[in-house]
């Protein structure tokens, strides 16, 4: 569990919801806004979102769990996403991913014990002509080899 992010209060969550209510189809923008603020969508947000949109809690949970992006618990301080799609595979992404996970002793979606890094799979970053690709938080990296990955992991503090 991370403690360096602001702890959500009911008022904070409601303010984020209210900020999106003018949109048509506001549920995804609301979930994105909450996740951007808190690093995850806290359980406490579900009934508030449901109430605001006149949905059931099950419906909100159903939407949230459908999409890969939304987290119920916060990730590590840095998220390294390794592309697993075909173009990256053609340039050795499978070996890169396996070695990275083995080095850190993690499975996909796992977080290092010190909370520094979460490793996630991603299916295509649109960097298929400079494969294999990865994304460190919001920053894209192309032609990632073992040395470059070591650098990324070290920088992230794993």
């Amino acid at each position: 569990m991370r403690h360096d992010l602001p702890q959500p209060s009911v008022d904070d969550i409601q303010a984020l919801i209210d900020g999106q209510l003018h949109l048509e189809g506001p549920l995804l923008p609301i979930l994105h806004a909450i996740q951007e603020e808190f690093g995850h969508v806290p359980e406490a947000a579900i009934p508030l979102v449901a109430e605001s949109l006149n949905l059931t809690r099950a419906e909100v949970h159903g939407v949230m769990s459908f999409y890969h992006d939304f987290r119920e618990v916060p990730a590590g301080r840095h998220v390294v996403r390794i592309c697993r799609a075909e173009a990256c595979q053609s340039m050795g992404a499978n070996v890169l991913a396996e070695e990275t996970l083995a080095k850190l002793g993690l499975e996909w979606h796992g977080t290092t014990a010190n909370g520094a890094v979460t490793i996630e799979p991603v299916y295509c970053l649109g960097l298929c002509a400079c494969a294999p690709a990865a994304m460190v938080d919001g920053r894209v990296v192309g032609r990632v080899d073992a040395a470059k990955m070591d650098e990324i992991i070290a920088e992230a503090g794993a």
Partner: peptide
């Protein structure tokens, strides 16, 4: 929603 591997024209 350009999710196909090998494509990046939209991006």
């Amino acid at each position: 929603d350009e999710g196909d591997s090998g494509t990046f024209a939209d991006r």
